[in-house]
Structures are given as C-alpha cells and as structure tokens.
Design a protein around this nucleic acid. Structure first.
Lengths: 365, 365
DNA sequence: TTGTAGGCGTTATCAT
DNA sequence: ATGATAACGCCTACAA
C-alpha cells in the first residue's frame, strides 16, 4: 500500500479502487484519476506526461504533482494500442544468450531504455533459413516498431520489405538499407599480419561455420584478409581446420591436429573466434603442447575472459555496435513516415577493430 | 507481400486496408476480418484462437483456416489491455547480461516462450538498495504478471507485497514465499573438502562481495561451509582475500598475494566464483606461479569456459534454475486469484550441485 | 492552450 | 455453444 505524499492535499480520493469489473490490478491510478486530482482533462494529462511543448508550465506542474501523488504510470498496453506505436524494438539472432548477443543487447539497452523503449528478444531456432526468418518476423510485426537482425545471414541482396517495420542488420553488409558491422576482411588481415611479423611461416587457420549461422559471410571475409596478408609476402596457408565457431569445435579440431608430430604442424594458428581459441588451448594443454612455445594462437573478438587466459586477439567493439545499432533504430523509427515517400537510404557503417597482443603469440622457436 | 494460400478460397476480401484513420500497420488483419471470413462472431474467433474447449471443432477449424489465410495474429497490446494479463514476466537482476543472468534468461525462455509469455528484462542500476528495488518494480507493476528476482538481495525477511504481482526469488532463501537456489553452504563444504582430501593444509579463500550485489548471502554461506569442512579436520583458514566476484577483482587480489614468498602463501585457493578464479589464473601466469604445481585452485559455478581452462569447480545448474523459476512463475500466475484468500505458500527449492574435478587442483608438492 | 469525443483490437459478460 | 456489446486505458483529431 503506497504512502501518499503529505505536502499535497488530496482533493479527490482515488476512485479506481471502487471499480469492480476492472481486470486491472487494484490500487493503480488511471489517467482519469490524475485528471480529476489535477483538475484538468485527460488529454491534458496525456500531453503533460509526454512533455508536449504546448502545455502551460503551471498546468504541467500540477499534472506532474498529481501523477506523482497517485504513483501514476501510463499503462503501456493502452498507450500502445491507442497510438499504434509499440515502443518496443525486436532483436533477432540465431542463438540467444551467447556472449556476443548478450553484449549486443547491453549496448542496445544502453540507448533504447533511456529513450523509453523495450527490447524484445527472439531466437531464430536452430536450423533456420531465410524463409523461417520471414515467418519468425511475421509474429513480430505488430509487436515491434523496428527490428535489429544480428548474424541473421539474410544475404547481401536482402531488402527490408516496405510493409514491415524498419530493420537494421548487424554483422553483414547490405546492398540496400542500413547495415552495421566491422571490417572482417581487415580483421583477418591484421591478425595474420601479426603472426607473419612475429616470423611465422607455417600458419594454420581455425575457421568454419557455426551450425546456427552457416550463411554468415564473416568466415569468408576473415579468410580473405588472412590470405591476402599471406600472399603479400609470398606465403600460403599451412592447413585449415573447422572449429564450427564453438569452444568444443575448436577443441575437437585441434585434438586431431596436435597429435601430429611437430614438424607437420603449423607454428601458429589464427582462430576466427576467441571461443574456438579456448578450445584450442584446452587441446594444447591436454596434449602437452605449449603456448606460445610450440604454437602461437591468435583469436578474434576479445571475449571477456580472453584477457585472463592471455589470448592475443582482434578486439571487436560489440557493445558499441549495439549502441550504434540502437541509434540507427531510433532514427529509423522517427523517419519511417518520411521514408515511405523516398527511396531507402543505404549505408554500411564500420566500427573500428584493434589488435590486442597478449601472451599467446610469440616468435617461433 | 505475403502470398495467400491457394487451397482455400477467400470468401471475403481483407477490409482492413481500407481503414484510413487506423494507426495500425496496413495490411494486417484484425479479429473482425477473421470473423467475417469464417462467418462467425468475433467472440468465437477469440475463443477458437485460444483453444477454448467449448468451441465446436468444425467452427474451430474454420476459424483457424481463416486466421491462417489472413496471417492473423492477435494484437498483444489489445489483448493485454482487455484481459488485464500482460503475458509478460519481468526479470530483475543487479547486473544484466552477465554470464549468469544470460544463462538464467535462457532457462526462463525455455519454458516461458512455449507457454506464450514474453520476458521483460530490467536492471537494478548499480548502487541499489531495497528502496530502489521497490521503485524499480513499481514501473514494472502493470507491465508484468510476475517477476523473477535474481540476486536481488531482498533479505530473508522480505515479503512480496500483496498489492504487487507475484514474485519469486532466485539465489536467496526467503522466510515467507517462494524461493529457489542451490545449497551454497554445501557447495562451500564440498569445494573445501576436495582441497583437504587432496592433502592441502594451507588453504586460502578468495571471496568478497560484488559491488552490485553486496547484500547477497552467498558469500557467507559458502564461507560457512568451507569453514565447517576445515574445522571438521581441525584446520583453520590460511588467509582470506577479496576478489569482488569479478575477474579483475580476483586478479588484483592474487597479484598482491602471489608476490609473497611461497612459504607464506596458501597451497590451495577456493574462489567463490569461476570468474575470480580466472583472475587468479591470470595473476599466477604473469607471476610465474604454476597451477596446480605451486597453487591449486577451485572455483564455483562452472562457467562456460571453465572446462577449457581446466578449472576444477562446483557446478551450479544455472539454466535449470531458470527453468524451475519459470515453472514456479507460471504456477504463481495461475494461482494468483486463489492465493488472495489463503496465506502465502512458503517453499525454498534447492537444485543439486556437483563437484567437477579438472586440472587446476592436485596434491601439494 | 485546453477540452470533447471517438476509436484502437481484444476480451469478458450476459443473453440467447 | 454462440453472438452482441460493453469495457480496457489511452491517444488524437477536431472543436473551442
């Protein structure tokens, strides 16, 4: 039971309690209660609560005081129904609750929440393809004002349907529309370059595709950068392995590789994700291969635990990607009516990445 | 633009498009459209869509077919407004998007989503206390049917206010109401016991409190179990350090400890969380302390990367905790009207934990 | 600048 | 078992 403020006299008792048929939780004030207390119309309350400029300051203060006294908060369902805006943005990703998606969500929340938006999260259940993606979004349609697609492998030629809420894509370059990500090709390049600079000449690749994001272009891009660095100095790849973008996949692949005599193994390994590198660490430890003594390892991402295991990596600003995506989303929501007339603005924004050298890489012995 | 099914003939065209004033996204069917197409009343559509038993199968099928043809999905805002049920459960935790909360969310989603509920996530911003908790939940009130409090350090004597949606607490035992967790005291005991069994006699503790969950009772419980194991064999603690439940905190604390000559250091360390153990690993590596040669380390949690770094730990079934919490929530929602009469049912459910021995612990040299 | 009133899409109540 | 119809709480023309 809320304690009412004592510095303001209740002119009108809360009447909401008396309503019998209401399904609403009892004791909650409605806009009508506030209007009565403040002595204004419901419309004015609505406007005052949303900081409309036209409301006279005096009235605004009275309304705000009344609202505070009654602990009034607008029922979001009612306002959404009435306004047609959901104040909710959807996040769809192949796998929820991974490290990457969590960080991204945090970034999205950083800007969405202060702006009064909720984040609704939806998985693309495991073996999913484009068709399912579309279906999945269908039930989203009237629930969100916009959607953020993360690692949704929609394909570069995908065009957000005009009939649907605006979408912004993270992790993939779109020919048409908004997209956001990092320069994976460059990331592959600097990772490989680091190994080359260290003096390595027998360098392997631990890549592959996650089963839940198998059409993601990141592998190809990172590979292309890596190969370019290699060919710049007249080198070729010394083996390529499939770690399926998971700790376990990296572990298994490396278990097979590291049983070979040292002469047949690469002296350095570039893993497309830190998690695969963790798996490689595990295999190395179990098989008595020393890092970086026998094998240098560089990852990609800068996972939260990478620092503590001393993994050299290419840092990706995941949370910042989320923040940027959120700003794009907000802009898209604001511009939606305008967009309807003109063509879709197209832009692919790249956030900077960074080589982080730690102790898992060293010159070959 | 959706392609309509060809095996069913549209008897009535979608009229929704024509409505001019609507703020709703065009092209979306409403219950009225479905009703017309199926030749029944809106009420019947509503009942059929929600699998009410009283609907004649024939009609039910007709409605479902019509709904499918029009790609009809009930507008959640409208149904929420009308029913007073939000079909949303709130998750509040001190820090969102940590490993622990992510796993918990995944578990909650596992059961909430199939049951047609959304999960709304809300942080308890950093330096938060009970009062703020209550405020925080206030804006939640009319948005959720129930709330799950994770590591919310509400205090064992906390009683969920009757005026608010039902709450279930995870990670803390409540005197009155539903709560859920693991036996932290027992966890502390088996962790310490493992070290003792290995032959260690100089055992340190890396504990403390997270700044965002400083009133959590888990530290006290794990410590109490650890001390009990020690005193069972006539031992005392060999130093206690504060790692603030973070990687960095663990790292800093161990940097101070491990510079001491070996003779003054513990031979084994029990960390209250795997993340602190990761920090300890890092410090050990940088200071040339070998694990488990010079120092055995056991953690608590079984973090996703613990296996790959070979950390011995006490496994906590986080995702399963989320699933159980979700079931409790669903039950609470269903029983809420009933609860109003009788007293609050009280129960604290404990999920099993498990010692996982890996390579970070060994007998002292 | 403020008030009036109609509508948002669904559910629930009450008849039938 | 099904059909009308009145809420649900808020927003937004439009009028004043």
């Amino acid at each position: 039971v809320p304690t009412f403020g004592s510095n303001a006299v209740s002119k009108i008792p809360m009447t909401t309690r008396a309503r019998a048929k209401s399904t609403r939780r009892e004791g909650t004030a409605t806009i009508a209660d506030v209007a009565k207390l403040a002595g204004v119309s419901e419309a004015t309350v609505s406007r005052a609560m949303r900081d409309f400029p036209q409301v006279r300051p005096e009235l605004r203060d009275r309304v705000l005081a009344a609202a505070a006294e009654l602990h009034y908060v607008a029922d979001s369902n009612a306002s959404r129904l009435a306004s047609g805006k959901t104040r909710t943005v959807g996040l769809v990703a192949p796998q929820l609750m991974t490290w990457y998606v969590s960080q991204m969500s945090a970034g999205l929340e950083d800007v969405l929440h202060p702006a009064g938006n909720d984040l609704l999260i939806s998985a693309l259940s495991t073996p999913t393809r484009r068709q399912e993606l579309q279906d999945g979004r269908a039930t989203f349609r009237q629930r969100v004002d916009a959607v953020v697609l993360v690692d949704a492998f929609v394909g570069h030629d995908w065009v957000p349907p005009a009939s649907e809420p605006p979408a912004i894509v993270v992790g993939e370059r779109l020919d048409s529309g908004f997209s956001l990500g990092i320069d994976d090709e460059h990331g592959g390049l600097i990772a490989m370059q680091h190994l080359i600079d260290l003096g390595h000449r027998q360098i392997g690749l631990l890549g592959g595709h996650s089963p839940v994001a198998e059409f993601s272009p990141v592998s190809e891009l990172r590979q292309s950068g890596a190969l370019r660095a290699l060919s710049n100095v007249g080198l070729r790849l010394f083996g390529e392995y499939n770690g399926m973008f998971s700790i376990e996949g990296g572990y298994k692949a490396m278990c097979e590789l590291l049983v070979l005599p040292k002469i047949h193994r690469p002296t350095a390994l570039f893993c497309y994700s830190d998690e695969m590198a963790f798996g490689a660490f595990q295999a190395a430890r179990e098989l008595g291969v020393s890092i970086p003594g026998d094998l240098s390892i560089i990852g990609f991402d800068d996972h939260p635990v990478s620092e503590s295991v001393g993994l050299t990596t290419v840092r990706q600003p995941v949370r910042e990607l989320g923040r940027r995506a959120a700003h794009r989303v907000l802009a898209a929501i604001a511009n939606e009516p305008a967009q309807a007339n003109g063509p879709i603005a197209t832009e692919h924004e790249l956030l900077p990445i960074e080589l982080v050298v730690r102790s898992s890489t060293a010159a070959p012995l």
